[in-house]
């Protein structure tokens, strides 16, 4: 059984069909990439998996659980974590605090215990902190631990967002354009991290990415979308050779690729 399965999913905004009869499945342990020109519906797929949007028809299951039965805040419970295209960090908190929020799905203390910091509170906090420190070490964020997000540069924020998602110890990690806006070296780092996330941590990764170089290097399986429809699916090389994909990219994509830095909103 696949870890994540979308079956015949369709989503409409008013009269516009954003995702049209999409079927895809992500296997455990894969790095799966969604590619396609701007407005192809890639982020929309993400937002449906995190349940910000509800499809008009079709089904989405994660490890056999029906995701459509869940509210957005009940999705992480299953072990799904995500990042956002336009970085959504908690600005007026430190990096450490941000990562600790990532641990929220493991919260076991009750409000009363927390108010008086008794019972499980101490041990739970230590455990959360320990888990967060592992992520900090993995992503080399030691220097920023006590810094406020407000003053951090873009590249670091991107990593902090990845770290926050990892802190929740997910089974499936959704990365929305992990390399957009990053420099060449930063993109290189991101590539190693994604590799390690899969190999060392055994986390399945589903990502949206424009940088075909990165996609080609890290992903096992690539799905190309255009106008909410599946164009092609296969390995990176297969998809890049597909005539429909080439046409979509050269027809409309050639322009949108350069404009992609601005990006759609989440």
């Amino acid at each position: 059984m696949s870890l994540l399965e979308l079956k015949n999913v369709t989503l409409k905004f008013g009269g516009v069909t954003a995702v049209n009869d999409l079927t895809m499945s992500v296997e455990e342990g894969q790095v799966f990439a969604l590619v396609g020109p701007n407005g192809a519906g890639k982020s929309t797929v993400f937002n449906m998996i995190s349940r910000f949007y509800t499809p008009v028809s079709g089904s989405i299951t994660f490890d056999g659980e029906d995701l459509l039965q869940r509210k957005p805040d009940r999705v992480p419970q299953l072990g799904i974590a995500r990042t956002f295209q336009n970085i959504e960090l908690f600005e007026r908190a430190t990096v450490l605090q941000n990562l600790l929020v990532g641990r929220h799905r493991h919260r076991r203390t009750t409000m009363l215990e927390e108010m008086f910091f008794v019972g499980r509170s101490w041990n739970e906090e230590r455990a959360h902190r320990h888990a967060v420190e592992e992520v900090i070490e993995f992503l080399d964020l030691q220097a920023y631990r006590d810094k406020y997000i407000m003053g951090l540069p873009y590249g670091v924020r991107k990593v902090v967002e990845l770290a926050r998602a990892l802190a929740s110890k997910p089974r499936l990690l959704l990365l929305d354009e992990p390399a957009s806006g990053l420099s060449v070296e930063e993109t290189q780092d991101m590539r190693w991290w994604i590799d390690d996330i899969r190999r060392q941590m055994g986390i399945t990764v589903l990502m949206v990415e424009h940088d075909m170089g990165l996609v080609g290097k890290v992903s096992d399986r690539v799905l190309a979308l255009d106008g909410g429809k599946k164009l092609a699916e296969g390995t990176a090389a297969e998809v890049q050779k597909d005539p429909k994909v080439i046409q979509a990219y050269l027809g409309t994509g050639a322009i949108s690729k350069t404009a992609s830095a601005g990006g759609e909103r989440v």
Binding site: A93, L100, R103, R105, E114, S168
Partner: peptide
């Protein structure tokens, strides 16, 4: 504690607070 951090999370970004399970 987690609750206090959840408060701050809600203040700064409701969308990503939800995505963290709050």
């Amino acid at each position: 504690s987690p609750l206090g951090r959840a408060f701050a999370a809600v203040r700064d970004s409701e969308v990503s607070a939800q995505a963290m399970g709050i």
